[in-house]
Design a protein around this nucleic acid. Structure first.
Length: 268
DNA sequence: TTGTGTTTTATTGCCTCC
DNA sequence: GGAGGCAATAAAACACAA
């Protein structure tokens, strides 16, 4: 058997009707009715019996919603800022203070949490999009730098070719001597590597460090287990902090020029 | 004034926890 | 099993352009 109760909302100066188990704040309350208009025309009901005796009970349907006053919202917002979850004691205190039903306070917090979550999702999306745009821009720079280096290497290689035509053919067919200068070996290696394959993708891991190839290393370590080198020295133009035109391979070239020991890998 | 989109209040159903 | 949380949704209230 369902019961009904009417209570006075002092903040809205309206009478509210709850149909339910007797507690307007209970979970199963099925309807809330604003009786502002009707209360002007008839006396205030205080008991379910009086209510059900009214022959015009049905006339006040459909029920209306009443918005909270700015003062109520302000206090609720302040409370939400302190703690977005509502323990029963605080709920009762707030309800009493605001002249609302505890259920209304609970509903307000629930809806407020949902709104906060949506905003948070929007913020997260904006942040991710910003990161993505930044990475994309960086990636484009890498591609341009790559093309530039390729052209540069090609020019340098051509300049290093012997001038006699007979020797030129010999150079093409024979591999470089093992005691060739490191800078020459490096030129060949880097050029070959730069021109292999069509996927110029740059992979970046969680830490923002650029990973080469699909794994953590650019080098095909299963084929050349002894030739795997860390690639931490590769920089992006963004985090470089330098002049912004630093080559990604500048560390390697510098090492070669200084005759520092480096790992040599020859691609076939 | 009216149509339409947005915000707010409230309900319902499902899930988890104690 | 009851209490409380959340997602989805309804519907009233509100804002605003045409």
């Amino acid at each position: 058997m369902e019961s009904a109760r009417i209570f006075f909302d002092p903040t809205c100066h309206t009478n509210m009707l709850f149909l339910g188990n007797g507690d307007p704040g209970f979970r199963g309350a099925r309807s809330v009715m604003n009786m502002e208009e009707s209360s002007k025309r008839r006396p205030f009901f205080s008991t379910p019996e009086e209510l059900y005796d009214e022959e015009y009970f049905d006339e006040q349907l459909p029920e209306k919603k009443r918005r909270l006053t700015p003062e109520q919202v302000q206090l609720l917002e302040k409370s939400f800022e302190e703690e977005n979850k509502l323990e029963p004691e605080r709920k009762s205190q707030l309800a009493k203070k605001l002249g609302l039903q505890p259920r209304q306070v609970a509903v307000w917090f629930q809806n407020r949490r949902a709104r906060w979550k949506n905003k948070q999702l929007e913020r997260d999306y904006d942040q991710l999009k910003s990161s993505y745009d930044s990475l994309l821009s960086n990636y484009d720079s890498v591609l341009k730098e790559n093309d530039k280096l390729k052209a540069e290497l090609l020019t340098l290689t051509e300049k290093m070719q012997p001038k006699e035509p007979s020797e030129e053919t010999d150079q093409k067919s024979e591999p470089l001597p093992t005691d060739a200068p490191p800078c020459l070996q490096l030129t060949v290696k880097v050029e070959d590597r730069l021109s292999t394959g069509s996927d110029d993708s740059v992979v970046v891991d969680d830490d923002g460090r650029q990973l080469l190839d699909s794994g953590d290393s650019y080098f095909p370590d299963n084929e050349y287990p002894d030739c795997v080198a860390a690639v931490d020295s590769i920089h992006s133009e963004v985090d470089d902090g330098g002049d912004g035109r630093r080559s990604y391979f500048s560390d390697v070239f510098a090492a070669a020029e200084q005759q520092e020991p480096i790992v040599w890998c020859i691609w076939s």
